[in-house]
Simulated assay, not measured.
Amino acid sequence: MILPPPLPAPILDPIVRLALAEDLGRAGDLTTDATILPGTRITAEIRARKPGILAGMDAAAHSLKLIDESVTLDQALQDGGRLEPGTLIGTMSGDARSILMAERTMLNFIGRLSGIATLTAAFSAKVQHTDATIVCTRKTTPGHRALEKRAVRCGGGTSHRYGLDDAILIKDNHIAACGSVSEALKRAHDYAGHLRMIEVEIDTLDQLEEALPHKPHAVLLDNMDNATLRKAVAMIDGACKAEASGGVTLDTVAGIAETGVDYISVGALTHSASNLDVGLDLP
């Protein structure tokens, strides 16, 4: 697995600034101002409290940098690394006031994004005996899509569309408004340039039969049982990519993968992942 690089600063910066501003409010950190003398220096460690997969260190590091560039952060583990309770993630040294101001925002990013990476890794492990790939969807926290989709990659998955502007995905409501699968695909091909992928959501085998002559790049086989998925994969016969979606769980994903689909999209990766418990302590 090739791990993703940190997100570029122009993407990270507005997200992190908003998170810090939300926490610091109008007056800053009153508790730290009241209790910590200026010039106090500390060393603090970030450690995992639960097992999982690490993600979000780029956002955490940028949070600290915006508070105080002089504080050092030595990462003991990179994103994508495996965590056990007590695993050292990173050590910070420097101004105590700065570290305490940045602490919660840093941990929020690491906990949320590591939770996504951990859930993705669990889904990916269930399908590793097949050729299927786990992908996330647009069901992300508003404003955090780039972070959350990167976390999915840290967990061994990949991404469906990043947004409405990077591929054409004809869904059931588009089909209903156009009048038919055929008409929707004709319009899409007329509109798309040579670099635009076209995928169409299919609910029945009859719709699939109608779609295939129009040569979509992929079909989204929505809420089909495994027997129907096998029939759909046989009908497609390599003509395009087959993606399964709809209520996929850890209990059902292996059986779906065994039908021969190429991709399985799982909205739960980003909308239902549990936060991974991480903490900051002074050794």
Rank of each mutant, 00 (worst) to 15 (best):
R145F: 10
R196S: 15
T133I: 08
D203K: 14
S265C: 03
E199V: 10
L164R: 09
A176H: 13
P38H: 06
A21D: 12
D13K: 03
R47N: 13
D203L: 10
A273R: 01
Q78C: 07
A19N: 01
V261K: 15
A125W: 02
D251S: 08
V233G: 09
D79A: 00
M224C: 01
R187I: 13
D58F: 01
G179E: 07
A232Q: 07
D237R: 12
D237E: 07
D33F: 04
Q207I: 09
Q78K: 14
I53R: 13
V219C: 01
L212A: 08
H129P: 14
V219R: 08
A192S: 10
G143V: 00
K139W: 09
I264R: 05
P8G: 02
E183H: 05
V253T: 04
E69D: 11
S180W: 00
S98A: 13
I168Q: 06
L12F: 04
V253D: 04
S245Y: 03
L269M: 12
E183M: 09
N108K: 05
S182V: 15
K65M: 14
L212N: 02
L88R: 09
H160V: 08
G56T: 02
K241L: 15
I116H: 02
K139S: 13
V16I: 12
L37H: 07
L37G: 05
I175Y: 03
L100I: 05
A19Q: 02
G179N: 09
H214F: 11
E209F: 11
G246D: 14
S245W: 02
G156K: 06
L64D: 14
C154Y: 06
L220E: 04
L269D: 07
A151F: 00
L169C: 08
I168F: 00
L37R: 07
M235Y: 00
M224Y: 07
R41D: 10
A211E: 06
T91E: 07
Y191S: 14
L20Q: 00
H214T: 03
R196G: 14
A21S: 08
G81V: 14
G155A: 05
K126R: 05
S93Q: 15
H174W: 03
D29E: 11
G39T: 07
D131V: 08
L282R: 01
L20C: 02
K241S: 12
L282Y: 06
V200S: 14
I170A: 06
D33L: 05
P283Q: 06
M92P: 13
K186A: 15
